[in-house]
Design a binder for these strands. Structure first.
Length: 251
DNA sequence: GTAAACCTGGCA
DNA sequence: TGCCAGGTTTAC
């Protein structure tokens, strides 16, 4: 990292005044992920941690790419002669920080990753069942229960599992929970294969749109026919978030 | 639990 | 003009 330009520090969490100083001069040794956070491990043991929020993008640009700055390019991380990483976020719901990943408070309350076979399974969900009246939608959206799922994919997972968003966890059988966990892996595998959902803002790390928006079965498809049975998709609000389901295929 | 807060942009 | 949006936190 040869230089860090901060055009706007007021993200969801205001950018630390030391952010640029901590990143400049470091070498990025590994790129990973923790739930919805991108994690760039640095050569001094700290990590550059990034969350894209709703409208954020982090895009690599070649040295030859035009230098023109967009109004919402808030942070530019220059990589010497190798180009730069540009963080753009119209709504500024994203955040970034440089700190030790171990003991990072952003990670403190995260549950098992949605793709972690050992952590996220039917037994994990069964253990929550006892004293809760929460809906499946609410439970899957809770990053402390299972980390990494957002509104689009929870809608798609519930459709794939044949379960309604408002169904109570308590009233969901072990077999249905097994189905739900399997559906999570299937939906995420397909979403990753198609590089995510570009419904309005999302671009991948090299500026390409994802393709999953063309494959979604129910999300934002109110009053359109279910791809399986042609019944019209319903829209409801669960926990302040829009939910979509097929009243025939999902129970 | 539920609402409101943080922001901008797009659409009816 | 008002309402909605891939997220998360904070306050009643």
């Amino acid at each position: 990292v040869s230089r860090v330009d901060v055009a706007c520090a007021s993200l969801r969490r205001p950018l630390d005044p030391d952010f640029g100083r901590r990143l400049k001069g470091r070498r990025i040794e590994r790129i990973g992920r923790r739930a919805k956070y991108l994690v760039f491990d640095l050569d001094d043991g700290l990590s550059w941690i990034v969350h894209l929020g709703m409208s954020g993008r982090l895009v690599y640009r070649q040295p030859s790419d035009p230098a023109a700055r967009d109004r919402h390019d808030h942070v530019v991380v220059h990589l010497g002669r190798h180009g730069r990483l540009v963080f753009n976020d119209a709504r500024r719901f994203g955040l970034m920080t440089v700190e030790a990943a171990a003991g990072c408070d952003l990670f403190a309350r995260l549950g098992p990753d949605a793709l972690d076979q050992d952590g996220f399974n039917a037994a994990h969900l069964t253990a929550l069942k006892r004293h809760t009246r929460r809906s499946l939608k609410d439970v899957l959206m809770d990053q402390a229960v299972v980390a990494g799922l957002g509104n689009i994919y929870v809608n798609e997972i519930l459709f794939a599992a044949g379960l309604r968003p408002r169904r109570r966890l308590q009233r969901t059988s072990r077999a249905q929970l097994e189905r739900l966990v399997a559906a999570t892996r299937e939906v995420l595998a397909e979403a990753i294969e198609h590089r995510g959902s570009s419904i309005s803002d999302f671009l991948d790390g090299i500026g390409r749109k994802g393709g999953y928006q063309w494959r979604r079965r129910v999300y934002d498809r109110a009053d359109q026919p279910c791809p399986r049975c042609r019944t019209l998709i319903k829209a409801v609000v669960v926990g302040q978030r829009s939910s979509f389901y097929c009243p025939r295929c999902q129970s």
